[in-house]
Design a protein around this nucleic acid. Sequence first.
RNA 1: GGCGGGUUGCCCGAGUGGUCAAAGGGAGCGGACUGUAAAUCCGCCGGCUCAGCCUACGAUGGUUCGAACCCAUCACCCGCCA
Length: 422
Amino acid sequence: MVSDPLDELTWRGLIAHSTDLDLLRAELSAGPVTLYYGCDPTAPTLHVGNLIGLIVLRWFQQAGHRTIGLAGGATGFIGDPGGRSSERTLLSEAEVNHNVERIGAQIARFIDLTDGRGLLVNNIEWTRDLSVIDFLRDIGKHFPVNVMLAKESVRARLDGGGISYTEFSYMLLQAMDYLELFRREGCRLQVGGSDQWGNLTAGLDLIRRVEGEALHALSWPLVTSATGEKFGKSTGGGSLWLDPELTSPYAFYQYWVNVDDRDVGAYLRYFTFLDHAEIEALDAETAARPQARAAQRRLAQELTTLVHGAAETARVEAASRALFGQGELEDLDAATLAAALAETPNASVTSPLPGVADLFTLTGLAASKSAARRTVAEGGAYVNNVRVEDPDLVPGPERLLHGRWLVLRKGKRTLAGVEVER
RNA sequence: GGCGGGUUGCCCGAGUGGUCAAAGGGAGCGGACUGUAAAUCCGCCGGCUCAGCCUACGAUGGUUCGAACCCAUCACCCGCCA
């Protein structure tokens, strides 16, 4: 049980902006406080960017507070203008509904919904039947346009690609969510990423005007990486999704194992529930023996377990050990090899085997046959850890491990399996 | 509704009749060095039955021996005016 979630979040570097922290602290220690975090269903699954929100909710829940996860079925129709240079493409109703359903299920995995300890809501509930007139009179009246124009999310767009009235109105909807959750559930705190700060304060202003109540908001900092890359982009540039169908647990695990030494300490604080002593020990370990990647492995283990569960984590850890270990592939027993390759991308073929370039394409190691040929020409293609020189080479039966497996590798760390069916 | 500007490869962006699969930058990929890290250097970076061919510069149609580049129409974006 964590006595003061604010101290915890502060230690972890998770507080970027806040309303009066002392007041909030007093409320939190006086009894359970209801708080909420919302994410929009812009995709069918959450990505690692949403993870901090869920983790912050859990910190509060562990301290005995009541958490609400909001899937923005209404705001998902509109699109948050923040952090974008141009207008969003509107999603269809079917897409939004589908996304809300899947995202809701993911949120439910992170917060405890039993016995009223947590709640899952969809803001379409209180927006669907709201009339335009009511909205403009009851909500819009409280928003000075000059204040709205001054918000970073809007200002950036006015200087750039412009903004539609639709997206301009987004902050009113989010503010209304907070008001609604205050009225319905007694919610007194909203948390979000620092890019949401303008929207969080819009809610505070609205509630102060309408209800005369001073509520709270808390934001965490934008997650950055030392190299300045966008955080959470997997190798190849795609997002790291929480859904195993979109990002395999193996790829997810590997992403964290490969985190920069300079970032791993911060990520351990942001994304894990490890205690202070253990994190500091891992910091020291990184400083002393960076090549062991102890902190990265622990980070990867914790996060993969959090998102995909312990059983799956054990499988991807075993696969990583087998494939990145110092030993020879030939020395792996059949069961270990089969299990490891089941975690990586893989393909099955029948003999006669296709050439190497085709195998690379089939397993997805190369995006096209041209790319596969290029990889071979550049000296980055390996079969069973042996570099291949000829893209049309057909591996002979004597190359098969345990009579049926080939381990394909592109570059240093991208692996795939081929199973030859008999 | 009028006038002006724009739409180029994953992103930004140059190109304004042949020498353009299209400069440059970013991202990404491979090699060397390493630690499945970073930095640095080198190479690659539309597809294919790969020394040749095919597809591509918003869409369609046209002019031309030849069009990303010229013309017409349409769509969308930005700005100014009404």
